[in-house]
């Protein structure tokens, strides 16, 4: 299967603090790959490097054969990044925001309209898309941003904490949206410290703590390997070892 993402011996330092100590993993095309770990484990740093907005101190990150540092503009054409607690321009309407983002990705009006239509369907916000984003709840904004992230048919979607701070109903909606959109072959790299969410969403999981990946596998495989009932217990066991 074609590799969507290859990360090799990735290191990142902020001044004297080394946030990543040589991380390596791969994500296949059409796969949902999750990084799980506590706050400060280095998940967001990895996602930002893959999304071309941070530069690694050393190591290689390759998206569909393109180096994220040397070919950043080309990588940005085929990925989409949804940061944790990302915001949208509050003075724009939901539709206005989707149109703005569509114009950044597509040159022709027909494709732009197709992107906006697709995003409008995924959000499920209906007429509320005509309202200013400033009037949206956190859940509505997150749905809008997620639909924006997938409307361009990215080959790799990078999603940081997809349901952070959302209520149960909104969180379930978001997870179902991610599942639906990946059925079209899009690879997803996501991060979360919500192990149950990861168990539901991901094909494979990497357990990361203190900038080091401790183990990688399918949720079922990891549970079987460590003899635990859920990923939370697997995580505690792996980190303890």
């Amino acid at each position: 299967m074609e590799q969507a993402l290859v990360v090799e011996n990735l290191k990142k330092s902020y001044g004297k603090f080394e946030a990543l100590h040589g991380v390596s993993f791969e994500v296949a095309s059409g796969e949902i790959f999750a990084l799980i770990g506590p706050n400060g484990a280095g998940k967001t740093t990895i996602l930002r490097i893959v999304s071309t907005i941070l530069q690694p101190t050393s190591g290689n990150v390759v998206v569909y054969g393109m180096d994220v540092q040397k070919e950043a503009p080309r990588v940005r054409e085929i990925i989409s990044y949804l940061p944790e607690e990302a915001g949208a321009y509050k003075h724009l309407t939901g539709l206005g925001y989707l149109r703005f983002m569509a114009e950044l990705f597509a040159a022709d009006t027909a494709t732009q309209q197709e992107y906006v239509r697709r995003a409008s369907d995924i959000t499920g916000l209906g007429d509320r898309l005509r309202d200013k984003i400033g009037t949206y709840s956190k859940g509505m904004t997150r749905k809008l941003l997620l639909s924006r992230a997938v409307m361009t048919h990215p080959k790799l979607a990078v999603i940081d904490e997809p349901t952070s701070g959302l209520d149960v109903v909104a969180a379930i909606d978001i997870r179902q949206s991610i599942r639906r959109t990946t059925s079209e072959g899009m690879a997803v790299l996501l991060s979360s410290h919500n192990m149950l969410e990861i168990e539901y969403l991901s094909d494979r999981v990497a357990i990361i703590d203190n900038g080091t990946i401790h183990d990688v596998g399918t949720p079922q495989g990891l549970k079987a390997k460590y003899g635990k009932a859920n990923l939370e217990e697997v995580f505690v066991e792996v980190v303890r070892q």
């Binding site: 999304s51 503009p73 940005r76 990925i79 989409s80 990044y81 990302a86 915001g87 950044l104």
Partner: peptide, 13 residues
């Protein structure tokens, strides 16, 4: 407003 990261990851130079 946490919009910068999104903008930086788009194909805008």
């Amino acid at each position: 407003n946490k919009t910068l990261e999104t903008l930086l990851s788009t194909p805008v130079g």
